[in-house]
């Protein structure tokens, strides 16, 4: 299967008054056609920054310093705003984190979806567009009367369903789901996840699923990457990582989530705060939270870098064998 998205050595930093914040550091991963890829990590580790950088929607002070993003074999970095506009939504679309505020409060839901379709296929008639929205709404389990409603008239779950319909409206090849279930209750969360998986199967879409919830990632994805402080520390098949986590951070993430199968273990919490990302060198930022750091680690001698440990499993060399 060919890759739909190839990200190589991507780095992005925010320019702030107190210095550069390295939100994305040397990130490399591939997403294959029809595959779902998970990105997991604690809050502030740069997951959303990665998502925004893929579409180059990062805030104005966010600067891409190196790397390449190849979407459908075309390089995206260095494209003009107008060229990017054609890829946005038609190529890659996003289901936003907290769909509550992702809808313009003064425009009807149907019109907001139609607007995107109008932009990318200007020759469609209004009735064609509306028909398509109806089909999408049926698929995500929304009543067609929602087309004529305003966002504030919908519940959180309905907004998120409509958001999925919006993301599908221009037949994208890749959907980025940026914590789509945050702020929803557990029952709705489950329904939304099912909805996402369903549309992914029906349309044969590629999916990047971003979440801090490692259990959801396990359920949703084929391959995954664990992010810590802007870098990917472990990358590979979801199954393999869950069976045999190599990085101490991944292990700790797993141990902090209860498992319903297998023996009961005491849940562990992660001590310490996420590190500040301002003006760092390229040394491992996990060392001071690492339960069992090697001497090299403690003295901060090793640069962060992924190394291959099997054909489909990469891990940061720093932590390759800390227990």
């Amino acid at each position: 299967m060919s890759s739909i998205l190839e990200v190589t050595n991507l780095s992005m930093h925010y320019e702030t008054i107190s210095g550069n914040v390295d939100a994305v550091k040397d990130v490399t991963f591939n997403v294959k056609q029809g595959e779902s890829f998970g990105l997991v990590g604690e809050s502030g580790c740069g997951k959303t920054s990665v998502a925004m950088t893929l579409l180059q929607l990062q805030p104005e002070n966010g600067k891409i310093s190196q790397g390449s993003i190849k979407f459908d074999s075309n390089e995206m970095i260095g494209l003009s705003e107008n060229e990017l506009r054609k890829i946005r939504w038609k190529g890659m679309s996003i289901v936003f984190q907290g769909a509550m505020n992702a809808w313009n409060p003064v425009v009807k839901v149907g019109e907001q979806i139609r607007e995107a379709m109008r932009e990318h296929s200007p020759n469609n008639s209004k009735s064609e567009n509306t028909k398509k929205i109806r089909e999408l709404f049926e698929m995500v389990g929304l009543d067609e009367s929602v087309i004529e409603r305003f966002p504030h008239e919908l519940s959180g779950g309905m907004k998120q369903r409509a958001m999925i319909a919006l993301a599908l409206s221009c037949d994208p090849k890749l959907i980025i789901a940026d914590e789509p279930t945050t702020a929803l209750d557990v029952v709705i969360q489950d329904q939304i996840l099912k909805e996402i998986r369903k549309v992914q199967e029906v349309f044969g879409l590629s999916l990047i699923y971003i979440s801090h919830d490692i259990a959801v990632i396990a359920e949703m994805t084929d391959n995954m990457a664990v992010m810590y402080a802007g870098s990917i520390v472990e990358l590979g098949k979801t199954e393999e990582i869950f069976k045999d986590p190599k990085h101490a951070y991944t292990r700790m993430l797993l141990e902090s989530t209860p498992s319903i199968i297998g023996e009961k273990k005491k849940l562990r919490s992660l001590d310490g705060e996420p590190p500040t990302l301002i003006n760092n060198d390229n040394k491992c930022l996990f060392s001071y939270r690492c339960p069992n750091p090697t001497n090299e680690c403690k003295n901060r001698e090793l640069d962060m870098e992924l190394i291959k440990i099997s054909s489909s499993h990469y891990v940061d060399k720093c932590c390759i064998d800390c227990e």
Partner: peptide, 19 residues
């Protein structure tokens, strides 16, 4: 946030600004 959504949808600058 909806300004970000509008940008992500690939709308033109003018439309994001006015609409």
């Amino acid at each position: 946030d909806y300004i970000l959504t509008a940008r992500a949808k690939g709308l033109s600058q003018r439309r994001i600004r006015d609409r």
